[in-house]
Design a protein around this nucleic acid. Structure first.
Lengths: 170, 170
DNA sequence: ATATTTATTGAGACTCATTATCAATAATAC
DNA sequence: GTATTATTGATAATGAGTCTCAATAAATAT
């Protein structure tokens, strides 16, 4: 882990500690290990994978604690859900990503991140119109990546989407 | 079921029959019962609820058949996934809805549909930019509805989100 | 009509992600 | 240091969704 990354994780741990204190909860080494692990990597992750990464590094944290910590991190805004695929949720942490959305291949599952200034504007206008206090949005565009586009021959590599079906959207 | 609604469902069943034929599959009364039930109602639905609705109307269709039919209906574009909440996916059928997105209250779970002409345009521009053949999108705005907005007193009615956590998004 | 082929069905077993249980432990407040 | 009580880990329980398999029934050919 680079010095930089470590410093970033420290900032996030600090934010988490404050949140915990405000809620009258308790700070624990297990929770800090989980946050450090999340912020040591910029990829999307899921609960099981996170648990295994910790275990492989000999950080003893139970699966139950991983599952219990994720909602706390969501509540304090350090991570967010990005999509439901293969029967479970996938998350990402907020550091070092400007706010962005996802373009996802419905064939091979590959994901491209994108950002567009018009999206937050749209979000706010629509929220105002319907009298919602908007906190966030999720914009996901689905289709075929260049590798998987029909008629390009690469379709054999596409895996069927697993449990929960990540299928088409109108 | 009004005459009108019945006619609509027939159109959809027709579309489904063609899809089934093209794929070399077989049409069955169970599948037709499932489609009729879906199109008899304009609300969002989930697999379990659909199964129970059928059962309450004494239409004998097994849960397995419900689960097996849903992906077929997604593939042929008659229904689509709208969100993952309370540990499972929720769907809607396409009839009588122009394409729209959802504004969802992260507190009480209420959903408002909205449509905006700028969204499909955005989708296409972004798809082109990243060399994706776009088929669809899902734009979900999260926040607090007017009933649940912080500082408005109604927060006691908010239910915690269940399994899978429908929590905040950046 | 009848026979043939094979997709579909239903019941229930199974998988696997997530949550609940509970006794032991350990943060925090006093 | 003691009391209070949130948290932990191990594991049981839950529940959504899938698989299995023998029986059934569409579609098609005869």
């Amino acid at each position: 882990m680079s010095l930089n990354k470590y410093r970033f994780a420290m900032d996030e741990i600090q934010k988490f500690r404050e949140y915990i204190r405000e809620k009258g909860l308790r700070n624990t080494p297990e929770r800090e290990l989980i946050i450090e692990e999340i912020f040591s990597n910029h990829d999307h992750f899921d609960a099981e994978g996170l648990f295994l990464r910790l275990r492989n590094k000999m950080k003893r944290v139970s699966k139950a604690s991983v599952y219990r910590t994720i909602p706390l991190l969501i509540e304090c805004g350090l991570i967010k859900e990005v999509y439901f695929e293969d029967g479970h949720l996938h998350y990402e942490h907020i550091y070092g990503h400007r706010h962005h959305c996802h373009l996802r291949c419905i064939c091979c599952g590959s994901v491209v991140e994108f950002a567009d200034d018009r999206i937050p504007r749209l979000q706010n206008q629509i929220g105002k119109k319907h009298d919602f206090l908007v906190t966030s949005h999720r914009f996901e565009i689905l289709g075929y990546c260049s590798e998987c586009a029909p008629g390009q021959g690469m379709q054999g590599t596409c895996r069927p989407s697993g449990r929960g079906h990540a299928g088409n959207q109108g």
